[in-house]
Nucleic acid binder design. Structure first.
Lengths: 384, 384
DNA sequence: CGACTTACGAAGGAGCGCTTCATTAGTAGC
DNA sequence: GCTACTAATGAAGCGCTCCTTCGTAAGTCG
């Protein structure tokens, strides 16, 4: 049972203010009449609400649109630029950052190359540089940041501490939330990168609008992120999606089939081997195809487990190997058809490398909405 | 984004009425002042709300409690008996039914033995008898039923049609929701029985209050039900939890280890074999222990998959074999500790055979609450 | 330049919740 | 059996929020 608080008249106003903000966020500038119609309020009431929102800084008036019949109508827009959000993707070789307005519209992006075994402080400094870069590009300052959401490889506990990170040795046992909290004067959110990628795909990618989605990170390491009921599923200890730990799921070593394929020429750097195999398979090389088949065999086991357990609407393939989705998708589908009761759609990611930063932004927007648009968390705050 | 409807004054009243009903449902009869305090409303307003709820039939006055200081206070209670809910468990060998009031308090229970290969019409008739029995025991009539929730073995699709049922041949392809809808003059809900059992355990069993729970049905057949975010997780096609379909999870044949154990005396009826093995293991029979170890080995694979994927707060063992939880729990825990990152609590069901009917009732209560306590679904209806 | 269209703004009214205060119906003590 | 105390009741008056209605204003079109 949720809250047991009854409501006051002021609560009603609060509700209507939030409804108005929501209506404005969803679509561009709206006239007073349009707003009134969407919210179901009468015009005079809507006017009062709008005045209040303007006074608080949430909304501003824009010039009326010319060329319309009748008296020009006042138009209002949500001041998405009264604050900014940052998303960060901490990967093994790259740190990406993006800055967005409060609507999640991305205004700037940067990338900082790093090495997996860079020392901790150097990594943190690179994060700082990536974020500063975004701020500089969009001519904003750290004071305008409302929230920063970070996606990182590895398992993060509920408090934002790194429990486990195979790819980045220095990351282990780090109090990431604490360190980033010292660096930035705003709220810091930490999440697993696959979960954020899943978020991005359900918000603006191929799975847009779906409520239950399994995102598979296929690449040199394997990962999964779950969206359940339209929200990121973290699990009780923030360890959901770690099925690659289970030997029977055959995920952990699955990429080896691609790395050790006999078609790969000697001397190929190890990070390019899998890509070579996938490309060879695309061109019909039977040995490479054999390796891909074995890879998908293994991939399908863990995937089938997730599909059978969750029965999602869609499975999205992301990560480095998803560039070779043409080689993988049909094969994966065929195996799922054999194993599963109901086959979800199986699609490739459409967001590519920006998946995680974009998902971090979306995650931050969600979090912000929760804070703002949940009634009874005090009065609507003043927006600068 | 949820609704974009702004609110009226009447909406506020509706909100407060719902809050009051909630407060009354949660605890027994309350005085006007107590109600006012809990809802945060002033006494005069609370009085008005209470009068309205009385007029609509949702609430009634009870005699003031004697022996208190000061003027005796009016007391109100939720009229949980203004309607009734029925839960049904359609099993292979038994059909159980329970009748509850609108608070989910169980007032009557019945059981009808059936045979797995009884013809369809006989089974449906047995359901009718089970429900009529409950009505008779509690002196109510079918007209007082508001909702009936049915848990059944097998996979049910979103429309309440049986897609697959290994245990009950006649069940296959049946439009269960349709047939039951003809039998009872109220809303009919169909769910998989493991999911309802999971529901019961999170509402009034061992997992009370937990938000993410995996319920394992361990018995002659294997099943699983998931609670995610405090709600039953059905999946997009209502097929969530069917991991026993996956060979690698080693669930489907797991019970065979117990059935074919060499310790079981020749001539034991097949349905008692597993129970015998479990009992023998409890008393130290090394051959039986060996069989149990193999059984738990297999059980743990699928369970670990679910734990790694979902990271639940608790795993609850239910179903026939959970009576031997003392033999199973520690062994299962030990294996999960090896396989999983974070170990959830592992506990045995406390509700026993009534698990599914009780869960069906809880499911109906939830459904009813959704319908009643979601504002903006029209005005609060009149309760008879 | 006048007719038409559309939005604005002010006035009056109804519903809901709040506070305040005198009143009432019990118990406890003498 | 009477008085003091306690706690709830019921009525009156206030303020806020939303609604409807109307005359007025600011554009476009012919």
């Amino acid at each position: 049972m949720a809250d047991l608080r009854g409501g006051d008249l002021s609560r009603l106003r609060q509700l209507n203010s939030l409804t108005a903000i929501r209506a404005l966020r969803g679509s561009g500038p709206l006239t007073l009449s349009a707003l009134a119609e969407r919210t179901g309020l009468s015009r005079p009431s809507m006017k009062e609400v709008a005045d209040e929102l303007m006074a608080l800084g949430w909304v501003e008036e824009v010039p009326p649109s010319p060329g319309t019949m009748g008296r020009p109508a006042r138009r209002y827009r949500f001041r998405a630029d009264s604050g900014y959000l940052v998303g960060v993707d901490i990967g093994g070789h790259n740190i990406r950052a993006a800055l967005s307005d409060l609507d999640g519209e991305i205004l700037a992006e940067t990338r900082q190359p790093v090495l997996p075994d860079d020392p901790l402080e150097e990594r943190l400094a690179a994060i700082g540089r990536a974020v500063s870069g975004c701020l500089a590009l969009s001519r904003t300052t750290a004071e305008d940041l409302w929230m920063i959401a970070v996606g990182t490889i590895g398992v993060i506990d509920v408090e934002g501490r790194v429990i486990y990170s195979a790819a980045v040795p220095a990351w282990r046992d780090l109090d990431l939330a604490g360190r980033l909290g010292e660096m930035f004067p705003c709220q810091v959110l930490i999440e697993n990168d696959s979960r954020l990628a899943a978020m991005a795909e359900t918000r603006r990618g191929v799975a847009k609008g779906a409520r239950d989605v399994v995102f598979l990170h296929v690449g040199r390491r394997m990962g999964a992120g779950l969206i359940i009921g339209g929200r990121v599923h973290r699990g009780f200890g923030a360890a959901a999606g770690e099925i690659s730990m289970l030997p029977e799921a055959r995920w952990f070593d699955a990429p080896e089939h691609l790395n050790t394929c006999a078609s790969v020429p000697a001397g190929t750097p190890p990070e390019d081997a899998a890509g070579f195999t996938l490309a060879a398979a695309r061109h019909g090389d039977p040995v490479a195809i054999e390796a891909v088949e074995r890879y998908v065999d293994d991939l399908a086991v863990g995937t089938a487990a997730m599909v059978l357990i969750l029965d999602p609407q869609m499975v999205v393939l992301g990560g480095g190997f998803s560039r070779s989705a043409d080689v993988l998708l049909d094969r994966l589908r065929a195996r799922l058809e054999r194993a599963c009761m109901r086959i979800p759609e199986v699609r490739a990611s459409t967001l590519g490398d920006e998946c995680v930063v974009v998902g971090a932004i979306d995650y931050a927007v969600d979090h912000l909405d929760d804070q703002l648009f949940t009634p009874d968390k005090g009065p609507l705050p003043v927006s600068r």
